[in-house]
């Protein structure tokens, strides 16, 4: 499927942020609030790898980098792995698996709801990311996986709702997402309107 070891490169990129953090923890000590650092690293990581996954199709189309298409799924799954770690820290460490506290957060904190909705969506996308699920779901697979934009949007909102005053990081994430969405719309408008685009979006197209 790939001549370049693109998956190897993708995975190397994916493990770099935690490796750098671990290196810093070892050399400089864990600092005042290591759990917060890991929470931020995995939250940012989940969102950024999701944006990277969304950037693959525009990059392939606009720059003709055909070989990178499979990275869409790889980066998507990496994003899911980050999101799972992020969720686990919240439930296990922050809330000590106190189900009452978890239920309260899930029902009363909009940022938790947005984050949980994003994770749930990513979960569905991850389990349906196999080739067999793709064949089984047929045209519905594409519909379903367009939901990745919603997951990214929920991720940005989740981040935004946690900020006290300095919105720059969330604005950057939101801006990148908007650009990627605009690139998709621009591609759609540039090509014959009314023509079904779905086939072009197929992840198997190489």
């Amino acid at each position: 499927m790939t001549r370049l070891p693109i998956h190897g490169i993708a995975i190397a990129i994916a493990i770099l942020p935690p490796l750098l953090l671990a290196f810093r923890f070892v050399t400089e000590g864990p600092g005042a609030n290591p759990i917060e650092e890991i929470t931020h690293l995995t939250g940012d990581g989940g969102l950024r790898f999701l944006l990277l996954s969304l950037a693959i199709t525009p990059a392939r189309r606009w720059f003709g980098w055909r070989g990178i298409a499979p990275l869409r799924r790889t980066f998507g799954l990496i994003a899911f792995a980050y999101a799972c770690t992020h969720l686990a820290i919240w439930a296990l460490v922050d809330l000590g698996l106190d189900w009452n506290a978890i239920a309260e957060d899930l029902t009363e904190r909009p940022y938790v709801m947005a984050g949980m909705a994003a994770w749930s969506l990513l979960f569905v996308l991850a389990v349906t990311s196999t080739r067999s699920a793709m064949t089984r779901l047929g045209k519905r697979w594409i519909r379903l996986h367009q939901g990745v934009y919603l997951a990214a949007l929920l991720g940005v909102v989740h981040h935004f709702w946690l900020i006290k005053a300095d919105y720059r990081p969330a604005i950057v994430h939101g801006g990148v997402l908007a650009l990627l969405f605009a690139a998709r719309l621009a591609w759609r408008l540039r090509n014959a309107p009314g023509m079904p685009r779905a086939s072009l979006d197929s992840p198997i197209s190489r």
Binding site: N33, I35, E36, P110
Partner: peptide, 9 residues
Amino acid sequence: PRWSQARER
């Protein structure tokens, strides 16, 4: 309004 104050680290 956005987060719980019941716990602290």
